[in-house]
Simulated scan of single mutants.
Amino acid sequence: MLQNRFGKLAATALTGSMLMGAAACGGSEPATTAKPSEGASSAAPAAAGAKVGLAYDIGGRGDQSFNDAAAAGLDKAKPELGLAEAKEIEASNGETEAAKEERLRLLASGGYNPIVAIGFAYSGPVKKVAAEFPDVKFAIVDDAAATGANISNLLFAEHEGSFLIGAAAALKSKKNHVGFVGGVEVPLIKKFEAGFVAGAKAVKADVKIDVNYLSQPPEFSGFNDPAKGKTAATGMFDAGADVVYHAAGGSGGGVFEAAKAAKGLAIGVDSDQAKTAAADVQSVIVTSMIKKVDVAVFDFLKSFSTGAVKAGPQVYDLKAGGVDYSTTGGQVDDIKAKLDEYKQKIISGEITVPDKTS
């Protein structure tokens, strides 16, 4: 199996703004609710010799969160689907769409098929390059705006998972004061905030909620700046919050450090960060909003191996098990019954979780 992390292929980071794709749901085909895979699958003939290209968002493999979840899906696929090769590349903060396009174009022209783009920053580049290579299958995580006959949109109900996290934060807070740290203030991360606020207020209508975004588009360093994350969370703890949730990618490490210093609690995102974060901060992570990017990436690669790739939106929601909360460490054992009650009410439709802030 290939284990090496590949660097940039040809283009270096360029200055300029990134035009970001819309994060709201939509697309050229009706959305289908995904059913995450269970267990191992045997390799199909179409998988043999497949060369997979995977383009990470800012932070790349090793961010202990969003990108690492995608990497886990690829790592699972290598032996189970018999991939011949996997090439991994990553984005740099501040680069232009042209740089992303060129990377994707080099993968496609180099025989990599399928190609998976991790994050909505690839929206425009994926749409353009996929049109140039109609025989190559593309998938993009967290974006519904890039549409085409050979593009699969892997989407998640982040607001539903974040509702459970908001409820957990309010139930765990002794000061009736919690916080939310967002990486970049874009529609996708606002979905996390909307669900978190709704969940916290469902538990305690008068709960105080602090919100801080680390950067504003077109500046996307908020997804990979632990120092900014620590500063923002420290401010919240100093102001009286005792539980802080982050949706900030690699910046979350700083939030955990702030929680440890303040003797407070933190909540992770995307991966079960009580397992993936630095060992010295894992004890302050009460739970994480799990977003099963690994499952979505594996499902897409598996569908390619069997010739069953579908274009358009594939939605991984709470009902499908695409989002959830983690229980590592046992810190939510005392409130698990209440969280599961909320989960069932969301799944049944009794509770409709907002995906936008008011």
Results as ranks from 00 to 15, higher is better:
316 Y>H: 13
310 K>P: 09
326 S>N: 04
315 V>L: 09
324 D>C: 07
313 P>V: 00
332 V>I: 10
341 E>V: 04
329 G>L: 04
309 V>K: 03
340 D>Y: 06
299 D>M: 02
337 A>Q: 12
342 Y>T: 00
312 G>P: 11
311 A>Q: 04
311 A>V: 12
336 K>P: 12
340 D>G: 02
334 D>G: 03
297 V>P: 07
335 I>A: 08
317 D>S: 10
326 S>F: 00
343 K>Y: 15
330 G>I: 07
341 E>P: 14
322 G>W: 01
304 F>H: 07
326 S>D: 00
341 E>I: 03
323 V>S: 00
298 F>A: 01
336 K>S: 11
322 G>P: 06
307 G>S: 05
297 V>S: 10
302 K>Y: 10
342 Y>G: 11
327 T>G: 05
333 D>Q: 11
317 D>N: 08
300 F>K: 14
340 D>M: 10
307 G>D: 09
303 S>H: 14
312 G>R: 06
320 A>I: 13
337 A>T: 15
325 Y>M: 09
309 V>P: 01
331 Q>A: 10
334 D>V: 12
330 G>F: 04
333 D>G: 11
297 V>D: 02
315 V>I: 03
328 T>E: 01
333 D>N: 05
338 K>V: 15
310 K>A: 03
320 A>N: 12
312 G>T: 04
314 Q>M: 12
297 V>R: 01
308 A>L: 15
336 K>C: 06
322 G>K: 13
325 Y>P: 13
315 V>W: 11
297 V>Q: 03
299 D>Q: 00
333 D>R: 07
345 K>A: 04
338 K>Q: 14
314 Q>D: 09
345 K>R: 13
337 A>C: 12
322 G>R: 11
322 G>T: 01
311 A>K: 15
300 F>V: 08
315 V>S: 13
